[in-house]
Nucleic acid binder design. Structure first.
Ligand code: FES
Ligand code: FES
Lengths: 152, 152
DNA sequence: TTATCGCCGATTAATTTAGTCGGACATAAT
DNA sequence: ATTATGTCCGACTAAATTAATCGGCGATAA
């Protein structure tokens, strides 16, 4: 049903949690886990993946945690999905690898690849702030914007 | 990974098989199954579902089979997906039913529903002929169009 | 030097998707 | 009428994917 994975859900929540925070704020796994009732161990894994992909930045040791590593207004939903779930693919039979028994006579593959590309473009045009904007952090955001508008 | 189900794949292949056929042509499950190497029993199920949704029309008895029940230039990919896989939903937590343990404090649900709606609109604007056009049936199609162009 | 954090591989459990089985009903041809 | 060939339908098993857990390591601020 073209569903996003629960992992992606969690990832987006975590990113949202970190977005538009004060300089120096560190989000740790436990806090996020408790805030959203996400299983700790699983969230840890997800954050590690995000970190490995540079989407968030890790700070080790006690009082450590994570910081958002990208600009919510530049970074897109498509990239988050790819980081967590791997490449976006509507069709399952990729050229070369793991071809299904239909690959030879499949008539719908080529046209679906084009549609898939449009889907990817669509997701790559949805910035993270579209998702983060609808909650309380919006106030902080406005404050930040107000500041940066002083020196145009 | 926003993947389409194999069932949908099969459904699209079958629809493609039936599209732009001569008046009176009946496609039977066995033929389609052998042409594309789709497991017979499974294809049968899929065709029954399509039939129940009016996408194809069934003709019982020997020499029976199926006929396309919709206009490939009017009918969309979104409707096929819905017929086979149920409603398109990126997010898994639907209001009321089966709420996950995050529903209460989930910050990403509302914005994702909007994005999901855009996705649905996108799929509802892709007509079946976009998928069927890229193969040999195109000749037949042109012939049909040529005929109908005689009397504008 | 220790308690608190992130890091990682492997494993198990749950859910979803794929494919199968067995038997009913419809009908055209013999 | 009987038969062969087709659709129809529910329940079932198998495979694949996703969700969640476990156990132990490494970094570092207090
Ligand atoms: S179903 Fe595998 S290539 Fe189309
Ligand atoms: S994860 Fe269930 S509502 Fe968002």
């Amino acid at each position: 049903m073209l569903k996003l994975t629960k992992k992606t859900d969690y990832a987006l929540m975590a990113i949202n949690y970190m977005a538009y925070r004060k300089e120096g704020f560190l989000a740790n796994t436990r806090n996020i886990s408790e805030t959203y009732h996400i299983p700790l161990e699983q969230l840890a894994k997800i954050l590690q993946t995000l970190s490995k992909n540079g989407i968030i930045v890790s700070h080790n040791g006690p009082k450590g945690g994570y910081t958002l590593g990208v600009d919510p207004e530049q970074f897109t939903l498509g990239e988050v999905i790819r980081a967590i779930e791997g490449p976006i693919q509507m069709i399952r039979c990729i050229e070369g690898e793991s071809s299904c028994s239909q690959t030879e006579q499949c008539t719908i593959r080529t046209p679906l690849i084009k549609i898939e590309q449009q889907l990817v473009d669509f997701l790559d045009n949805i910035t993270i702030d579209t998702i983060c904007n609808e909650n309380e952090a919006i106030d902080q955001k406005k404050a930040i914007r107000g500041l940066s508008n002083i020196s145009p």
